[in-house]
């Protein structure tokens, strides 16, 4: 059992949990994830490591409460426990002294981008961060991201906060205006796809963190297979980071949709259980 030592509601649907897992905390690196199973009936799902604290022996995860597991997690309070918490999984993000790096975060992707930007900045890179959300209420950790970047642009689709529009617009402007050595884009598949399409014509290496459905997260089931450069890869052990210009995005998105009906059914049942309680 892994105890929750702190929790925070970041937006209506986005929650932060700080979980006691000292051994995982000692090993965590930017770009890695944990596999979580909330309770005995629970599914195993991957969640990005947003932060860690070796002294407190904790891992921070941030989740968007959209499915059964994430909604179960969202209801937990400090002092409650998660049944299983496995990590740190996946390869860490490659971080070097690249020069100028643009970090693009879409939605909960901010959770993944934060520790990456922090290390990039510590390694003497010029870090430009772009964070995008549909609307003002969905924005979180703006200060966090500002503190680990040299410049931060915020966009909202509806213009309710920051610049109106999507992340690819400022991305394109930066690419046209200055030398950019690398782009790291993390968020929904569609956003990562369009960031990759934006950087491809100018030939700037673009790293994305893929988020297919996973079961074990350790390379033994193959549920998370993705096609990169025409080759099948397992996102859990070969990734989750890949070259965005090589990813077969349509395949990723179609595999992500594989259980939409079951997800609805599962959530409906869970809702009736929660109401009964």
């Amino acid at each position: 059992m892994y105890r929750i030592i702190a929790r925070e509601t970041l937006t209506e649907n986005i929650h932060l949990l700080e979980v006691e897992a000292p051994e995982v905390a000692r090993k965590a690196q930017p770009g890695q994830f944990v596999a979580v199973r909330v309770d005995e009936e629970g599914e195993r799902i991957p969640l990005t490591i947003a932060d860690w604290d070796v002294e407190r022996g904790s891992i921070t995860i941030i989740l968007l409460a959209v499915g059964t597991t994430t909604r179960k997690l969202a209801r937990l309070n400090a002092g409650d426990s998660i049944l299983n918490f496995v990590g740190p999984l996946g390869r860490p993000t490659e971080i070097d002294r690249f020069g100028t790096v643009i970090c693009v975060a879409g939605g909960v992707g901010t959770a993944s981008i934060f520790p990456i930007s922090r290390l990039l900045k510590a390694r003497q890179n010029e870090v430009i961060a772009i964070m995008g959300a549909r609307t003002r209420e969905l924005i979180f950790w703006e200060d966090h991201l500002r503190s680990v970047s040299h410049q931060l642009i915020v966009t909202t689709d509806d213009g309710s906060y920051g610049r109106k529009g999507v992340v690819t617009e400022p991305l394109k402007e930066f690419l046209g205006a200055r030398k950019v050595d690398r782009v790291i884009a993390i968020g929904p598949a569609i956003m990562m796809k369009f960031c990759s399409l934006t950087t491809k014509p100018v030939g700037v290496k673009t790293i994305v963190s893929l988020n297919p459905i996973m079961v074990d997260g350790t390379g033994m089931c193959g549920c998370c297979r993705v096609s990169v450069g025409g080759e099948t890869k397992f996102a859990c052990v070969d990734g989750p980071d890949f070259d965005g210009h090589e990813v077969d995005w349509d395949l990723l998105m179609s595999r992500q949709r594989a259980y939409l009906d079951e997800e609805k059914e599962s959530m409906k049942l869970w809702e009736t259980k929660v109401v009964k309680k």
Binding site: E41, G42, E43, R44, T68, T69, V215, D216, M220, C221, G222, C223, A258, Y259, E262, E263, E265, S266, L269, W270
Partner: peptide, 26 residues
């Protein structure tokens, strides 16, 4: 599916008892 995934969902995650258990299978 790989057989590993199909069997892991079924046996380890008890997908044969979906939706009582959360892991689905087709």
């Amino acid at each position: 599916y790989s057989a590993n995934e199909f069997l892991t969902r079924t046996n380890l995650m008890k997908a044969y008892r979906f939706p009582e258990y959360d892991t689905p299978i087709k």
